[in-house]
Amino acid sequence: MRRRPTFLLSVLAFGFAFFYVPILSMVVYSFNASRLATVWGGFSTKWYGALFANKQVGEALLLSLKIAVVSSTIATILGTLAGIALVRFTKFRGRTLFSGLVTAPLIMPEVITGVSALIFFLLLASWIGWPVQRGFTTITLAHITFSMVFVTTIVQARLLQSDRAIEEAAMDLGSRPWQVLWDITLPVISPAILSGWLLAFTISLDDVVITSFTTGPGSTTLPLLIWSKVKLGVTPDINALATLMVLCVGIGVIIAGVVMNRAEARRLADERLAYRSQA
């Protein structure tokens, strides 16, 4: 008879419990009728109602989304260009310095990035009178600077994998370098650009540290709002908000899974098609 690997199974169970019990309890307590976060007072959906009635939360969410969309889009454009420059132009003056400067935010402690951005904006305000007030623009600029590197890294990795010859082939067939970039390079690396954008978007959306340094009065993003609310004690409406976010992420993961499964099935079908047409 085979021995059950009891020890291994219990370690696995403990690990999963450690990850998911907190989230599960949060979901359960979001339906708590009691005001106290730790005492069960019966089932209720009133905190969801309270959440939707709360204009502050809606505004914060909207601001967060706006910042995330703008900053990740600009970061993607700049990051993609930097990635292409680093992979395709192996010899230019100051390439090592450029490469170092581009990747530095990756290892820089967020607090340092945040403080230095704040000091920079303050100095700038005293020299040229801008920014008068910190808010959407300053947060967005700060987010661009630290999320660009993620796009660059992903694009760089994709470009290193791709066959240089396809760009040469386009050039050989009469296209000038800019046209090759537009016709061939960008479409081929578009999945990498998209994942870079998504990563930059996500990072921007949940950033607390850098945002808290570069924000100003009236510009509260969702993570900042949650942070400030929790400081006054965890209320069930935060649980409700967090539950909704878990739901969004969960749906996103399921959609991604389905899309990936389909892509894999299509790839297999294409392979069979290629094999059959060999005759």
Partner: peptide
């Protein structure tokens, strides 16, 4: 024009 060893077709 050149025919590349990897064929270099535009995927």
């Amino acid at each position: 024009h050149m025919m590349f060893q990897s064929y270099a077709l535009f995927p």
